[in-house]
Simulated scan of single mutants.
Amino acid sequence: MAEIQSPLPGVFYRRPGPDKDPYVQEGDRVETGQVIGMVEIMKQFTEIHTDASGTLESFAVEDSAMVSPGDTIAVVVEG
């Protein structure tokens, strides 16, 4: 199991825009380096990538929630 953590403080978004589909859903297969969301701070957007391949088991934060550095964003079950 791998936890994907926020590298910086800000607001976590699961989709690239309000009218866009989420990058991934819980239960989706993800590959190392795949974008699963982004963190916005002061109009700067940083993509959040997986560092493991497997199944995205769950998001630990809601869409549009505040995150701090080191907060777990999502959990990937490797395999």
Results as ranks from 00 to 15, higher is better:
M1G: 10
A2V: 05
A2N: 12
A2Q: 13
P7H: 11
P7V: 03
P7S: 12
L8K: 12
G10L: 04
G10W: 07
G10H: 10
V11W: 01
V11Y: 08
V11F: 01
V11T: 15
V11P: 03
F12K: 11
F12G: 09
Y13P: 05
Y13T: 05
Y13K: 08
R15K: 15
R15I: 04
P16T: 04
P16I: 07
P16M: 02
G17Q: 02
G17N: 12
P18I: 12
P18E: 06
D21M: 13
Y23D: 07
Y23V: 09
Y23G: 06
V24G: 05
Q25T: 04
V30Q: 09
E31K: 11
T32D: 14
G33V: 03
Q34G: 06
M38P: 00
V39L: 04
V39N: 00
I41W: 10
I41H: 10
I41E: 02
I41L: 14
M42W: 08
Q44W: 05
Q44I: 15
E47L: 01
I48S: 10
I48L: 09
I48P: 03
T50A: 08
T50Y: 04
D51L: 02
A52W: 02
S53M: 08
G54P: 05
L56I: 04
L56F: 08
L56A: 05
F59G: 00
A60D: 12
E62S: 15
A65C: 02
A65W: 02
A65I: 01
M66K: 15
M66T: 12
S68Q: 15
P69R: 10
G70R: 12
G70F: 05
D71T: 11
D71K: 10
D71I: 04
T72I: 14
I73K: 00
A74H: 11
A74W: 12
V75S: 03
E78V: 13
G79R: 13
G79N: 11
G79M: 05
